[in-house]
Write a protein that binds this DNA or RNA. Structure first.
Length: 793
DNA sequence: AACAGTTCTTAGGTA
DNA sequence: AAGAACTGTT
């Protein structure tokens, strides 16, 4: 604990004498932020202004000047990705000296670590489990049913989100203000209290608890707080605008003594209000920490002037901001490109082609690697269209932030088995896998187990054993249940003998005291083997099965990085992204939220349609505030782009499986015309669809296209409902006026393309399509080719 | 208990 | 559209 009284390690001494290469190449503002080491510092860092650089240089400087040891610096981020990058970059400055920056991590991982050490202060044991959302919902559902609440009208997920919000605000059950008393049919606080009670008996906590328990400990135990205030001499916080109340309290408590806290953030990139983030935290910093040094990073090193101008113009529409003026030395570059499409599929098709073109290196530009390109969507369901399209054209892609590895069914099942092996009393894990694989233990048998366990105040495993002994479970299931229980006991024993050292101090390696017969990897394999879980997937003939087995193998492989199953389970609960596939270059598909902190030379921003983006729900729930957050999201999206930024929207999109006509996003109107190129979708010029290359070459002639009738038409045409919803892949231009067709007329069909009418029978046409061949088509599904050329949508 | 077929619900972002 | 929840059948 006595970090500061110990002698300086030699490496630190040596470092203090070394020059400071990390200071080179910092601009004056960055340098100021790096060198103001003591006291509170607020770094207002616009997008692409080199805040990570400044932040990591600051850490390097702290170490280099001998101000602190690696273990004396607390550096918090929101994502594991950010933490990893920071580690990497500090390492780059200082070599292996940073090996142990034990307190550089996400809020959640750091809190978990703290909580392990002091669990008993909040009534937990240090080996508590961290619930995943599945467990959480199952538990809540039980409580809701037990409380005699109609689970249909008051679903567990609603309660879960209420609890989440309360925890974000740092309200423990007894602190929920009376204004919230009507939540969840007036039973919200009651269920919340019961839930926390239940968590305690289960020796478990959820994500929100990690923070909240720490805050509780700090508030109730001055000595503990003080020891950490002393330990963490310097505190750095990334993405400060995203902190919620609980995190804010946590930070304020820890920084309370020395106030050596450096917060980095950008109010314009605050996009997590829905998750409880309080922009107020950053707006209030100077009041919270009087005398704070405020540094603004405004020079952008990322994007071309056009892209920057577009982003600035959009964000200028927000009232509620500190205001920054981003500027850049860069010149020229592409304007932001804007294009409308008929529907989401065409949008995906077009973007696919664009990516192929750029990858090939058309129009005099150097080719871009697929790694350098990204599609950023507002809502994850938009990803599908791109995945489908990219699959058909065989373009490698990666979905970032999709269903996480450890959230997949087979992984969770396997983890539940591991959890049981580690702690047989883990009832939630038991519930998950009693009948997976099928053991003939259906609802009835499970109810019996529950009943007996409850009546005897036993864990489910113990209850199940008792039920067997009492002969309450009979038939096929009994034998299998016995197998399972014995298996759990055996695995648990195996863990006991494999020996774990007290992994309490972060810097100390975990030592295996004896050469146990089975290491944890073998044990894990054996568990999956003996439980019949692997076999279940081997026998499964669905197309996913092989992939799932693959994932299980990966899971086992991931174990290699850990000393034991416990440690692994701990990490798995906190770790998010699996960056296992470096190999081949791939286009990235991700949400705008997921893209924060990243940058790409080429960025596509599809789906800029009112209701989708800005999201209707956001506006309904939070009105103007919601809209402003959406606008910040637009800002984040545009500023991800370094060289080429393409915004698009579709006139029709399927929503809830229904076709709906869409209006371009209001953010489209907010783009500055002088910095935007309006592209015409290919295929609408009649015959020869111009490729990207020609549209860009033609840019000069269409320099004022933004104010051209074409653009106005684009806007006005889109502003009124363009068409009836499309059905079955066919196109309806206007349901009220089906044009008459003469034989010989050239027509356009959304799915089959262009063709000539060869005969007419009532409303049915016989059409020779140029690509798709001869077909019978109902007249309302085609339009005259001229009309298709004329009306962009 | 297991399965197949049905209806119903739901659809924002994340640690 | 896709998944969860529900129903009926074997």
């Amino acid at each position: 604990m006595s970090d500061f009284n110990a002698d300086l390690p030699l490496s630190a001494r040596a470092m203090a004498a070394r020059p400071a290469p990390y200071l080179d190449g910092l601009n004056p503002a960055q340098r100021q932020a790096v060198e103001a080491l003591d006291g509170p510092v607020l770094m207002l860092a616009g997008a692409g202004t080199g805040k990570t650089k400044a932040l990591t240089a600051r850490i390097a400087h702290l170490l280099n000047t001998g101000r602190a040891y690696p273990s004396g610096i607390l550096a918090v981020t929101f994502t594991n990705r950010a933490a990893r990058e920071m580690k990497l970059r500090v390492g780059g400055y200082l070599g292996e000296a940073v090996e142990g920056m034990p307190w550089l991590g996400t809020f959640h991982s750091i809190c978990a670590k703290l909580l392990r050490r002091h669990a008993e202060l909040v009534g937990l044991k240090s080996n508590f489990t961290i619930l995943d959302s599945d467990d959480q919902l199952r538990l809540l559902k039980q409580l809701i049913v037990a409380a005699n609440i109609d689970e249909k009208r008051w679903p567990a997920r609603l309660m879960a989100s209420i609890i989440d919000q309360w925890k974000n605000r740092a309200w423990r059950p007894d602190q929920v203000p009376s204004s919230e008393a009507n939540a969840f049919n007036n039973r919200g606080t009651e269920i919340y209290a019961a839930y926390q009670e239940r968590l305690k008996t289960l020796n478990a906590c959820d994500f929100g608890d990690l923070l909240l328990h720490c805050v509780s400990i700090f508030q109730a135990h001055a000595d503990v707080l003080e020891s950490y205030q002393k330990r963490f001499r310097y505190i750095l916080v990334d993405e400060y605008q995203d902190t919620n109340v609980a995190q804010y309290l946590w930070l304020r408590l820890l920084a309370g003594g020395h106030k050596n806290i450096c917060c980095v953030g950008d109010d314009d990139q605050s996009i997590y209000g829905w998750r409880g983030a309080e922009v107020g935290n950053i707006l209030r910093f100077e009041r919270d920490f009087p005398g704070a040094v405020v540094v603004r990073l405004e020079q952008n090193y990322r994007s071309t002037p056009h892209i920057l101008a577009a982003a600035s113009q959009v964000i200028a529409g927000n009232e509620d901001r500190l205001g920054k003026t981003l500027w850049t030395d860069a010149r020229d570059g592409e304007k932001v490109r804007l294009i409308g499409h008929w529907d989401g599929e065409e949008e995906a098709r077009w973007i696919g082609e664009q990516i192929e073109d750029l990858n090939r290196g058309t129009r005099g530009l150097n080719p871009f690697s697929l790694d350098q390109m990204a599609v950023l969507v507002r809502a994850s369901h938009q990803m599908r269209a791109f995945e489908d399209r990219f699959l058909t054209i065989g373009m490698p892609y990666r979905v970032i932030g999709g269903p996480r590895f450890y959230e997949r069914m087979e992984i969770r099942d396997a983890l539940a088995y591991f959890r049981l092996a580690v702690s047989p009393g883990d009832d939630l894990a038991f519930e998950r896998i009693v009948n997976t694989p099928k053991r003939g233990l259906g609802d009835k048998a499970q109810q019996t187990i529950q009943r007996i366990a409850r009546a005897n105040d036993l864990s489910l495993v113990a209850g199940a054993a008792l039920a067997l002994a009492q002969g309450e479970i009979k038939g096929k299931g009994a034998g299998q249940l016995r197998n399972l229980i014995e298996g759990i006991a055996r695995w648990n024993r195996a863990i006991g003998t494999s020996g774990m050292a007290e992994a309490d101090d972060d810097l100390i390696e975990v030592i295996r005291p004896d050469g146990a017969a089975l290491n944890h990897i073998e044990l894990a394999e054996q568990i999956l083997e003996e439980s019949g879980y692997t076999e279940m997937w081997l026998n499964d003939k669905t197309p996913e099965a092989p992939g799932r087995l693959e994932n299980l193998k990966e899971l086992i492989k991931a174990l290699e990085n850990f000393e034991n199953l416990q440690g692994f389970l701990e990490h798995i609960a906190l770790i998010m992204d699996n960056e296992s596939d470096a190999g081949e270059a791939k286009v990235s598909i991700m949400t705008l939220h997921g893209a924060k902190g990243l940058e790409f030379p080429v960025v596509f921003l599809p789906g800029w349609e009112d209701g989708l983006f800005p999201s209707q729900r956001s506006m309904d729930e939070s009105g103007q505030k919601g809209l402003e957050e959406e606008r910040r999201l637009a800002y984040v999206g545009i500023t991800r782009a370094e060289q080429i930024c393409t915004i698009s929207f579709a006139a029709n999109r399927r929503v809830y499986g229904q076709w709906q006509s869409q209006m371009p996003s209001r953010f489209v109107d907010e783009l500055p015309g002088a910095h935007v190129d309006v592209l015409t979708p290919p295929g609408l010029y009649g015959g020869g669809a111009p490729s990207m290359a020609s549209t860009v070459e033609a840019r000069a002639e269409r320099a004022d296209v933004y104010n051209s009738p074409g653009w106005r038409r684009l806007q006005s045409a889109s502003a009124r409902p363009m068409s009836q919803p499309r059905e079955a892949g066919n196109m309806v231009i206007d349901g009220t006026a089906t044009p008459a067709f003469e034989p010989g007329a050239r027509v356009f069909h959304q799915k089959f393309g262009y063709g000539h009418v060869s005969s007419v029978e009532g409303d049915k046409l016989f059409i020779e399509f140029e690509k798709a061949g001869p077909r019978h088509i109902v007249a309302k599904f085609v339009v005259p080719a001229a009309q298709a050329d004329d009306v962009p949508f």
